[in-house]
Amino acid sequence: MNCCNGCHNQGYEKLNPVFEKYRNKPGSLISVLQEAQELYGYLSMELMDYIAENIGVKPAKVHGVATFYTQFRLKPVGKYLILLCQGTACHVNGADAVKEAITEELSIEEGETTSDNLFTLNNVACLGCCSLSPVMMINGETFGKLTPAKTKEILREFKARESKSAEVTA
């Protein structure tokens, strides 16, 4: 399938070993999508079409599965993906206030990415760290017992780290 610029499947070669791995294993669509997302960060329409073509299912089915499961992202995400836990314990212990703190600090709502492409905020069902509630995870690292002030402090640390590395590159 050609993309809008007429180029042919540019940059999707990394998926070839994945197709090979699951070639004779029926029912592997979810696994292929998981690996594709791991490689490319999110599932674009072109990427889903490319997968459909290569594993021999209809694009509608790929799209149907990708939109059904919350793990799959259809839009690009920022460098730091914030997963804010929506579990019961977190809710009872003030996850809403943490969400507000993130929104105040970064000016983004659930599902949005900051204009500098640094942070994306996603809600997530329980992370299973209930005893540390409320909890958020940033790129795999878990932060617990959050308060609005602590949340802002953590985000500022990430920001500071970024501007420092930007200075170094400059």
């Binding site: 029912g27 669509l29 979810i30 999508l33 998981q34 599965v65 059904f68 919350t70 793990q71 069902a125």
Partner: peptide, 20 residues
């Protein structure tokens, strides 16, 4: 891949087969 309903047996099986 993140779907609460997959705790239900028949939904879990559908998911194992790569379906919704």
């Amino acid at each position: 891949a993140g779907a609460f309903v997959c705790g239900e047996e028949t939904a879990l099986i559908a998911s194992l087969e790569g379906e919704r």
